[in-house]
Computed example of a mutant assay.
Amino acid sequence: MFDITFIQSKIESLREFLGPGAVGLRGRIVLGGYSEEFVALIGTWGRADYERHWREAATRLVAGADRTAFFTSAFETRWTMWRQGDRIVVQEHFLSTSGFPEPFDPDDLYTYIRDLPADPAERRVSEWMIDIDAVRDFLRRRAGECW
């Protein structure tokens, strides 16, 4: 199972965490038997931007791309996925553009996904595995929905 969605429609204040004017929407990502809630900042991107991006990111993998990323906070937090045949390796990352050409280009988000180390011992972060069919099912469930 793979899913990424907003679990509420009401925008909430994040003032206590990020200062005056900061707002976000609660969401959830599901990776097999694991799920985690997140708060997506609303400002740079709105709800429709996140949802469009998630469909695009899933479509890339299904179409054969070897990597993609699902942002849960615009240009800051992402779930990075690398395709290895029909298996998908998933890790949560904070976006770091250090070592990449300047300036940062938000229209080319996938340029900033580094290669997955071949040796699992070098990865040093939590990792999940899902099947490409789970991503296909996500797209089928979302087809025709008015997010």
Rank of each mutant, 00 (worst) to 15 (best):
S73G: 10
E56S: 12
G19S: 15
G19N: 09
Y50V: 00
Y34P: 02
I29A: 13
Y34V: 03
W79S: 07
R67E: 11
R67V: 06
A58T: 01
R55Q: 15
I42S: 00
R55I: 11
D49F: 11
R60A: 14
D49R: 15
T80E: 14
R60T: 08
D86L: 03
R28H: 07
Q84A: 09
F38D: 08
G64W: 10
A40D: 02
G85M: 01
W54T: 02
R55P: 00
R28W: 13
P20I: 10
G24D: 04
L61E: 13
T72P: 05
A48M: 15
V23A: 04
V23I: 15
A63I: 13
D86C: 01
V39D: 08
A57K: 00
R52P: 02
G46P: 01
T68E: 10
R78K: 12
F70K: 00
R55V: 15
S73R: 07
T44Y: 04
Q84G: 01
R26T: 11
G24I: 12
L31P: 09
I29M: 05
M81K: 00
T59G: 07
L18Q: 09
A40N: 04
E37G: 11
A63P: 10
Q84D: 05
R55S: 12
G19H: 15
F70I: 04
V62G: 07
D66T: 12
A74Y: 05
A63E: 14
A58Q: 02
Y50P: 00
L41C: 06
F71M: 02
G64R: 07
W82T: 02
A48I: 07
T68S: 12
T59E: 12
V62E: 08
T44F: 02
G43S: 03
I29E: 05
A65D: 06
